[in-house]
Write a protein that binds this DNA or RNA. Structure first.
Lengths: 331, 331
DNA sequence: ACCGGCGTCTGAAACGTTTCAGACCATGCT
DNA sequence: AGCATGGTCTGAAACGTTTCAGACGCCGGT
């Protein structure tokens, strides 16, 4: 593999000069510069980022660890983060924990060893050995889609309690009295908060609530939950799902069983992913500003790792209800 | 930041011994080992991967560059690749070119500078300056979802011509005579091959073909194409889309315009993503073994970067037609 | 008593960069 | 002519590891 030394020898200059050509072209004479550049071209020299980083002490990449790349919501978060990072000349490497703590731990360890500039983290759980170990490594990080006390780290999140309440109120207002909630794994604060919001909206109404916990937060878990829902009696008239993937699965189960949506079963999802509007019955959903979430988180992290260390912040966005066919009241 | 030297000093041993504790624990006496380990724990030492890699000359991560992470097909490819990489103790960093050549070039340059073990590449175009420059860097790579002559690189792909033909034959057999093809950008060989397969299946039949090129390969491009399709006259009775995202968009346009699917317009998609079965009308689609694609590609790359350099290979999988409601013949 | 071998540890070289103090030269000014 | 200045280049140190030859002490065998 060709290094800076080979280039220097071939061009008849010192390695310092080659380095200058690459990093501070203005300090080297035009003739030398073009000679060196043509040798670089000729030899196909590519600088070694690990040596560069070792010397510089800081890296030019930031890490992003999300809960589930199979969820288009997180893909949008990633897009937003990349926009912000590229604007500053940084690269982002995206990793997918799949909600598995071991994978999360392994990726966090990798980020720390790589000495990335910082990490955008959508954690499985805020407490936990992996996270504690990572904290000790001193790598700066910002929580994404998870609120945290500013004493620990900056965070960018969406108010999940408010989102759950939005869904709950909507269902009560459209006349439902038996409501089910298909929740994801209770380790995730997002899931707990959405349930809490839902409960608060239902309190004081005549509606009664059944809660089902799905195994995962994906379509097939939703199908399972939908099947279970069909077995309950009396059957609820509406179901709120902790995210759109679950909702799509539930919807599939309903359609498969010949249960009409929304007439016999209204459905509300969460995230408002692009597929929600394209579903068998377009889904009512709680929209989150995913891209904005990613962008803001990256910006916060960049600010935090700049020379002027600003205060830690906890940014909270507000979700928004998008009403579609799956909860439309028909006369 | 605490380094190996700090640990050595604190534990009263040489840095060589600390390194041995971390990398070859068996060669150091039990007493020393545990003393060093506790100092490591106490100081929160994390080894610096760039120094390690600089010395070792080889990296422990491989890169994966896909066309569009917004397409669940590629998310599955990524999952498969991660499985294979983790099994060998390697990490994968996934990047998203979004079908933009500049981004592709930028990520390829990053991979080369990082000296990753190798790259799994789903390229925008096989010819092009970026790819040529990358080739010169000497970083091993394997094409994913793109066939290539074994003289250049190994590749893992799915027979897109056969896939297009599957769709075409199915539409002809179900009695369609006016067929539209909503294709993606023609730079992508996948798109060209699917069109070619479709044409070959239609040749000799009485069916006539209209081709529309969509701007992208996503849902909103599909909606646009669907709107255009509605304006053509005489209107086709069936449409084949270059992927499922396009098909979902087209479907949305049909539903929005009150065109019944499949009675007035049959739809066939491509990829068989999980959302295809959950659509307004469950989509007939051409299924590709996405996860297997990723896994095989990673395995090929791993083999290629091992000591025993095996021959380059071009693995081609065969797609499969999944028939659902969107092309069902009703009496 | 001597020697070979083993287990354990040390010290230094090497990896490929960047950076910085200083060397050298030509130029323009006094 | 002498000197300061600025432009250009060099050489060496430093970054944090891993690795390897060698040093040292201890044991068992001859």
């Amino acid at each position: 593999m060709v290094g800076i030394k080979d280039v220097a020898k071939r061009a008849g200059v010192s390695i310092g000069t080659v380095s200058n050509v690459v990093n501070r072209p203005h300090v080297v004479a035009a003739a030398t510069r073009s000679r060196v550049l043509s040798v670089i071209e000729e030899l196909g020299y590519v600088r070694d980022e690990s040596a560069r980083q070792l010397r510089a002490g800081r890296s030019r990449v930031m890490g992003l660890l999300v809960l589930d790349l199979g969820n288009p919501f997180f893909v949008d978060v990633a897009r937003g983060a990349e926009e912000a990072a590229h604007a500053e000349g940084l690269n982002i490497i995206t990793c997918n924990s799949g909600q598995r703590s071991e994978l999360e731990a392994s990726y966090l360890a990798m980020f720390a060893e790589q000495r990335v500039r910082g990490v955008l983290l959508s954690p499985v759980a805020t407490s936990g050995a992996a996270l504690a170990a990572f904290r000790r490594s001193g790598t700066p990080y910002v929580f994404v889609d998870r609120k945290a006390p500013a004493s620990e780290a900056s965070s960018v999140s969406v108010d999940d309690v408010a989102g759950g309440a939005l869904a709950g109120r909507h269902l009560v207002e459209t006349g439902h009295r038996r409501i089910a909630f298909v929740n994801g794994p209770a380790i995730l604060t997002q899931c707990r908060d959405r349930e809490q919001g839902l409960r608060s909206a239902l309190a004081g109404s005549a509606a009664e609530l059944t809660v089902l916990e799905a195994i995962g937060l994906d379509v097939s878990s939703g199908r399972d939950a939908g099947a279970r829902l069909l077995g309950t009696s009396p059957r609820p008239t509406a179901v709120f799902c902790a995210n759109d993937l679950l909702a799509l699965g539930v919807l599939q189960a309903m359609v498969g069983a010949g249960v009409r949506v929304p007439d016999e079963m209204a459905i509300v999802g969460y995230d408002d992913i692009e597929f929600a509007g394209a579903a068998a019955v377009p889904l009512t959903s709680v929209r989150q500003p995913a891209r904005r979430l990613g962008r803001t988180a990256a910006e916060l992290l960049l600010a935090e790792t700049s020379d002027t260390k600003p205060e830690r912040r906890a940014v909270v966005f507000t979700p928004e209800l998008v009403v579609r066919e799956s909860t439309r009241v028909r006369r």
